[in-house]
Simulated scan of single mutants.
Amino acid sequence: MLRRALHSVLAIVVLMTGIIVGVGATAGTAHAVACRTWSNLPLEPGESNEDVRQLQIRVAGWVASGERLSYDGVYGARTEAAVRRFQEAYNLDVDGVAGTQTITKINQLSDSDCTPIHFSYAELNQCNSTWAGGAVSAATAKSNALRTMWKLEAIRHKLGDNPITVSSGFRSDACQPSDSAPTSRHRFGDAADLTAGTVAGRCAFAVRGKTSGFSEILGQGYEGHNDHTHLAHDPSPFWSAPGCASYGF
């Protein structure tokens, strides 16, 4: 209890400092304070609450190859491992506990609407502004897109923080190409097509997708995917990018 109380005091100090410094620093830092109040710091293995679920959304792109992180609000072994990878990637103290240092970094990566600073809802929905008309409710489609964006943020960092172009995200039935499968994950809001000017660039997305929580990866050499890499969540995992074999896929 004493440890949690001390961390809570530190969290308040850090967030207040972020408010003051954020005005003259980065927009991401300032926005982060408005995005979410983390009230249960530090978040530790064994805990179960809404803050843990929100943490899982933000570190879901830091899993092992082929793994997916559940958004169940339970701080289990896989969540701890993802936090450790996140901490290592951003040169933080690696302890598997989401304390003030880790949450401050997450806040710096967050925009005012809780999307990661390098991606937006507009990028993930070039179809319509309502998120309606797909395979799920508008709220679910938008929620799925948020989870996808945080995975994309992880890929971006793994590739040196170079910009990523999203050519297609959520698509309502009216926006779906006539030859698309009715099971297309674009209809669910949890798919993103990424473009790059070279095969190497497109294959880099496919390779990093394996360790960023995506269960559906379609890329170079897969029919209809020689100009982009498709990353999505699918209950039945499927990866295919035969043209990326020489790149480690």
Rank of each mutant, 00 (worst) to 15 (best):
D95V: 01
D179W: 14
A181W: 11
K158C: 06
L69W: 04
H186V: 02
Y121N: 02
S137P: 06
K142H: 13
T102L: 10
D111V: 03
N162P: 00
G133Y: 07
E153K: 09
A77M: 14
Y75P: 09
G99D: 00
W62Q: 12
R85G: 09
N91A: 15
I164V: 03
R156N: 02
S70P: 10
Y71D: 04
K105P: 06
V83T: 01
N125P: 03
A181G: 10
A60V: 01
E88T: 12
V63C: 08
A64H: 14
T79D: 05
T183C: 09
R68E: 15
D179V: 09
R187N: 05
C114P: 05
N107Q: 13
S184T: 02
N128M: 10
F170V: 00
R156Y: 09
A145W: 06
S180E: 14
P182F: 10
A132P: 03
G66S: 06
K151W: 12
F119P: 00
S180A: 15
Q108M: 15
A135L: 13
A98H: 01
S112E: 11
I155Q: 01
I164W: 03
L92H: 09
R156F: 09
Q108E: 15
L152D: 02
A174K: 06
H157R: 14
A154H: 02
T102N: 01
T102I: 01
A64G: 12
E80T: 12
A138P: 00
I164F: 06
N125A: 02
A60Y: 07
A138G: 00
D95C: 06
L159V: 01
R85E: 12
N125D: 07
T165W: 13
T115M: 15
T183Q: 12
A145F: 08
S178C: 06
N91C: 14
P116M: 07
S120T: 03
E123G: 00
L146A: 11
V63G: 03
A145I: 04
S184D: 09
Y71A: 12
N144E: 02
D72S: 07
S184N: 07
C114L: 11
W150F: 10
P163Q: 01
M149G: 02
Q108P: 09
N162V: 13
E123T: 00
F119Y: 05
S70C: 11
R185S: 09
G73E: 00
L159T: 00
Y75D: 01
F170A: 02
Q87C: 08
G66F: 11
V97Q: 04
N125W: 11
D161K: 12
V83F: 10
T183R: 13
T102A: 03
F170I: 01
N125V: 00
G99L: 10
R84I: 01
S129D: 13
S168H: 06
G99C: 06
A145L: 07
P177L: 06
G73A: 05
H186C: 06
G96Q: 05
P177A: 05
D111K: 14
A64C: 13
A138D: 03
G61M: 06
A141G: 01
Q108H: 14
A145E: 04
L69E: 00
T79V: 02
Q87V: 02
V166L: 11
I106L: 15
Q101F: 13
T130H: 04
A141Y: 09
A82G: 07
T140Q: 15
R185P: 05
